[in-house]
Every structure is written in structure tokens, then in C-alpha cells.
Simulated scan of single mutants.
Amino acid sequence: MTRRRWTALSLFTVSILVASPALPQSRTCDAPNASVTVGDGDAAALICDAAREAAGIFAACGLPDIPASVRIETVDAFETDCAGIYHCGRGLIEVLSPAALAARDLPDGAFSDLSPEAYFRSVVVHELAHAATDGMPCPYESCVASVEYVAYAMQVKSLGPAAQAGFETAAAIDRAVALEELNPMILFVAPDRFAQRVWTHFTQQDDPCGFVRRLVAGEVVLDHGFFDP
């Protein structure tokens, strides 16, 4: 989820600093087209895994590269129920720490079958998708549904086949999903259901990544001018 919610085209060197009470030292982990600097600890390793996964799936889908100097910080809580926030224009991503995510009681959530570590990695990929597509064209004040479609599609795409199959089983959608069902009202009222509809719609396309590229280019817009988040 973004703070202002909206492509950077450069090859990227992502500087990621994992926030903690103290960072005695940091290390670098390489990802395709990226050098990721993170602090020590379990969260650092998970962020490195997520950055590599994100770089690969974004490239395979023809999405823009993650822009330079994106920083990721882990936090213990948000004022909202978000799992992560991308701060547009600041190159800053905040995500709940693995421990904070594990402590959340979400038995019926779309991602509830994932381990805390897998969920954490997927949230990082989600927020990196926001960073990569910051500045998507929008004819309205906000195109939050279009932006979140891209992020949720990449989040679920980053999961392994077994986790994707479990996600689809939990969604239990056995029909074609129409674009009208992927609207900002559903996103705000039932974000998990929105995520499930996004993945179902994405996998039903003849060219799923082609559809995402059309969203990123502003050729398809899921939002409406009268909706004010």
C-alpha cells in the first residue's frame, strides 16, 4: 500500500537499510541489476531474498526496474492495519517486522496460509512493485485500484507454486472476474477479497503480464473519478 499511491526507468542500485535499535554493520547481497545493502539479521536475509525475487519477476513481466536508492525499514506497528507502506517521492518503504507480522491474528486473511517469513517476503515484493511503478499515469486524483492491482499481482506471483495453489483454493473463485469487480470500493472495504480477485483475473488473461503493462502505461484504468479515498 502506498502513502500517496502511484515508473522509474533506470537500472537500479537499491540501498536498503533495515531499521533496528542499532545497526553495528551492514552487508551487501547481489540481485539481478541490483546491489542491496541491508543490516544484519533474519529480516536482512529475507529482504535480500525478496529483492532478488522482485527483480526477476518484474523483468520477466516487463515492468520498470526498481529505482535507485530505495530504502526499506522494518517497524513494529503502523497506525493503520497496513503490512507495508511505500512513501511516494521519498524512496522509503516501511514494512512490519517478521515478528510483528507473526503476531497479527489474521486467520481468515488471503495470505493466512503463508509462514510469517514467506508473508514478509511477499509484502516486500508488494511494496517494491509500488516503488517500481511510482508515477503511473492517472486521469483522476487517485488510481489506487490500478496501482494495487499491479502490486498484488506481483506479490502473489512471487510465491512458490504450492503457495499460489493454496491462495487460489482459499479464494474459491470459479468464474471469470470482470474488471468492474476490481474497483477501489472493494479494495478499501475488503482488501483481501480484492487481492484474491486480482490474482484470479490476472491468471485468467491470455497475456497476464501484458495486462499489467497496460495498467502501468495508463492504457487501462480500474478507478473512477468520483471515488475519493
Rank of each mutant, 00 (worst) to 15 (best):
G135S: 10
A100H: 10
L215A: 06
A31T: 00
R90M: 13
G218P: 08
I186E: 14
Q205P: 13
A54I: 01
S112T: 07
L114T: 04
G210K: 10
F120E: 00
V70W: 10
I85Q: 13
L23A: 14
I186M: 13
D76M: 05
C143M: 08
R4Q: 15
Q155A: 09
H130I: 03
T28C: 00
Y119V: 00
L179D: 11
I173G: 11
A145V: 05
G62P: 02
S142K: 12
G56F: 00
R193K: 12
I93D: 01
F211R: 02
L215S: 09
A131R: 01
P191S: 06
D108C: 01
V212Y: 00
Q196V: 04
D206A: 14
L182Y: 05
A195S: 13
S26D: 05
S112K: 05
P184T: 12
S115K: 14
V221T: 14
L114R: 04
A110S: 12
L222Y: 07
G210D: 10
A83V: 11
C143R: 00
S158F: 01
R3L: 14
L92P: 03
F12I: 07
P139G: 09
D134K: 07
D30W: 03
P161C: 11
L222G: 08
L222S: 06
C209P: 00
A195G: 15
R3W: 13
Q155Y: 04
A162Q: 09
S115N: 00
R71Q: 09
F226P: 06
T203H: 10
F226D: 14
A22F: 02
L46I: 10
A50H: 11
S97D: 07
V150A: 06
L101A: 02
E148A: 03
I72M: 05
T28Y: 04
L106D: 13
F167C: 05
I173F: 04
E117Q: 14
